[in-house]
């Protein structure tokens, strides 16, 4: 079975939408896209199946850039396993992140 390709695009409401597997081979493209967006406020992770450490770096660097610009980055609709990775790594303490099916802002 082939791995789902990684895709990153802008959603209808201007949010960044990620899907597939964000691993080391895709992080340059992801970072380039996010840098081009300027200050992304929301990243929808509903279609993201897997995130590797290289992907976590991309999110951290984007969060750092947003924070420096006084903006806040929100990750929404993270599927269970992806949400768990953020939680285990302690990133849910520095990022606002919601699990799929959970309303934004819930604990």
């Amino acid at each position: 079975m082939s791995k789902p390709p990684f895709e990153i695009r802008l959603g209808p409401a201007g949010e960044v939408v990620m899907s597939g597997r964000l691993d080391a081979t895709q992080c340059d493209a992801a970072l380039q896209f996010l840098n081009a967006v300027g200050e992304p406020r929301v990243i929808n992770l509903a279609g993201l199946e897997y995130i590797a450490s290289a992907g976590l770096r991309v999110i951290l660097l984007t969060q750092k850039r947003c924070k420096a610009a006084g903006a806040k980055l929100r990750l929404i609709d993270a599927a269970g396993p992806v949400f768990d990775i953020f939680h285990y790594a302690g990133f849910d303490q520095i990022l606002e992140i919601t699990r799929a099916g959970e309303p934004a802002g819930s604990p």
């Binding site: 951290l60 660097l61 750092k64 285990y88 790594a89 302690g90 303490q93 520095i94």
Partner: peptide, 13 residues
């Protein structure tokens, strides 16, 4: 996660 935060220059909680 702590190492990644430090590497990215983020303040760790």
């Amino acid at each position: 996660g702590v190492l990644l935060m430090r590497e990215s220059g983020m303040e760790e909680p």
